[in-house]
Structure formats: structure tokens, C-alpha cells
């Protein structure tokens, strides 16, 4: 494992912990899209179907369990926690996320490495992760402004994407048989979706003003 991959995993983990701590500390999930969080939980569950069949390392196995548990905890809080669920912006979070799920499932059935249960669901999870941020971006756009912690959450998610791209470049240059095209192309699509958000994040930071997204 190279330093970029590790930095990517850590910023990914930090982004999830920032969100969980924000929800826990403020007892509020205002500005957070439940649909995006449900999609991420689904991404982790379908990608880590190999948890009990293929062992890579203790690090990998522990991180997989942590990602499944933390993302499920966020969904649980937003849906079931007595106080937290009151602050959920249900009226603004109207993205049809089922269409994303179906679209990614169809794509995974067409484009995959091998036609096996695990490989199709692995490809599905990669495609779904690329577009899972869309309901969150739509919610931010509708609510007009972004509080600091939500901004930091998206910032760390973006850092994770950037580190993973550096990791793929590094692996492509140093490993003979590195050919993860499904990951790389989906990863670039995902990063492009963040690039737009990052632009406005940077503008608001530079002007020291509240983050405003164009409608």
C-alpha cells in the first residue's frame, strides 16, 4: 500500500467521522441528504460482500467493517434517532435516488470484469459511489447555504478522491499489472462531480462569505 492510498482511506474515514460527530454533537442533521447517506451505506455493503470470502489484510478487513458500521450509524441516526430525525430536510431532499440505483445496476450487469455475483455487485458499488453525492449536491443547492461542518465533510470527501487518483497514477507507474479501468474511469467521474462544488467552496472561502451555490 502506498502513502496516497493510505491518505485517501484516512480522509475518507475522517469525512464520515466528521459527519457522525456533527450529528451526534449538535443533535441535528440539517443540510445532510439522507438519500446520499443511504446510497453510501449501500455502496459499502455491496462492495464488501467479499469480507468473509477473500482476505487481503487485517487493515482492509477492519476498515471494511468500520465503513459499513459508521455509514449505517449515520442512516440510523437520521431515520430513527428521536431528536436528530426532526431536523432532517425531507422537503428539500427529493432526489429520485432509486433511479441512480437502477441505472448503476443495469450498467454493472453490462460492464463488469466477470459475470459472478460478487463481481457484478463490486462494479455496481463502484458506479454507485461515483454518483451517490448527487442528492447531497442538489440539497445544498436548494438550501442555498452550507454550514461549516457540512462544508468540511464534503471537503474531506473531495480530498479522499484526490488521493485515490494519485494512488492510481502511482500504481500505474510502479505495478506491472495494474489495470483497474472500472475504478479509474468511475473515480474520475466522481471527482468531476466534486470539482464543481469545490469551485464554489473555494470562492466562498476566498471571499470569507457563506457558501452559496448557483441555482
Amino acid at each position: 500500500m502506498n502513502i496516497f492510498r493510505f491518505a485517501g482511506d484516512m480522509t475518507h474515514l475522517i469525512s464520515i467521522l466528521v459527519l457522525l460527530l456533527k450529528i451526534y454533537a449538535t443533535k441535528s442533521c440539517a443540510g445532510i441528504s439522507l438519500k446520499t447517506q443511504e446510497l453510501y451505506a449501500l455502496v459499502f455493503v455491496t462492495r464488501y460482500l467479499d469480507l468473509f470470502t477473500d482476505f487481503i489484510s487485517v487493515y482492509n478487513s477492519v476498515m471494511k467493517v468500520v465503513f459499513i458500521l459508521t455509514s449505517s450509524a449515520i442512516v440510523w441516526c437520521m431515520r430513527r434517532h428521536r431528536i436528530v430525525k426532526r431536523s432532517y430536510d425531507q422537503a428539500l431532499d427529493t432526489f429520485r435516488h432509486l433511479f441512480l440505483v437502477l441505472g448503476c445496476l443495469v450498467l454493472a450487469l453490462i460492464v463488469h470484469d466477470k459475470f459472478t455475483f460478487q463481481e457484478v455487485f463490486w462494479a455496481f458499488s463502484i458506479y454507485l459511489e461515483a454518483v451517490a453525492i448527487l442528492p447531497q449536491l442538489v440539497l445544498l443547492q436548494r438550501s442555498g447555504n452550507v454550514d461549516n461542518l457540512t462544508g468540511q465533510y464534503v471537503f474531506f470527501l473531495g480530498a479522499y478522491r484526490a488521493f485515490y487518483i494519485l494512488n492510481w497514477i502511482y500504481r500505474y507507474l510502479t505495478e506491472q499489472h495494474f489495470r483497474l479501468w472500472i475504478s479509474c474511469i468511475s473515480g474520475l467521474v466522481q471527482t468531476a462531480l466534486y470539482a464543481d462544488f469545490f469551485y464554489y467552496y473555494y470562492i466562498s472561502w476566498k471571499n470569507n462569505s457563506k457558501l452559496q451555490l448557483p441555482s
Binding site: 482511506d9 467479499d50 487481503i56 470484469d113 463490486w122 485515490y164 505495478e175 499489472h177 489495470r179 475504478s183
Partner: peptide, 10 residues
């Protein structure tokens, strides 16, 4: 590692 079906990333 790095083969397509090995999935050694998270």
C-alpha cells in the same frame, strides 16, 4: 497485487 479481480482497495 493490482489485478482486476483482486480488489485490494477499499
Amino acid at each position: 497485487g493490482g489485478n482486476v479481480s483482486e480488489h485490494d482497495e477499499l
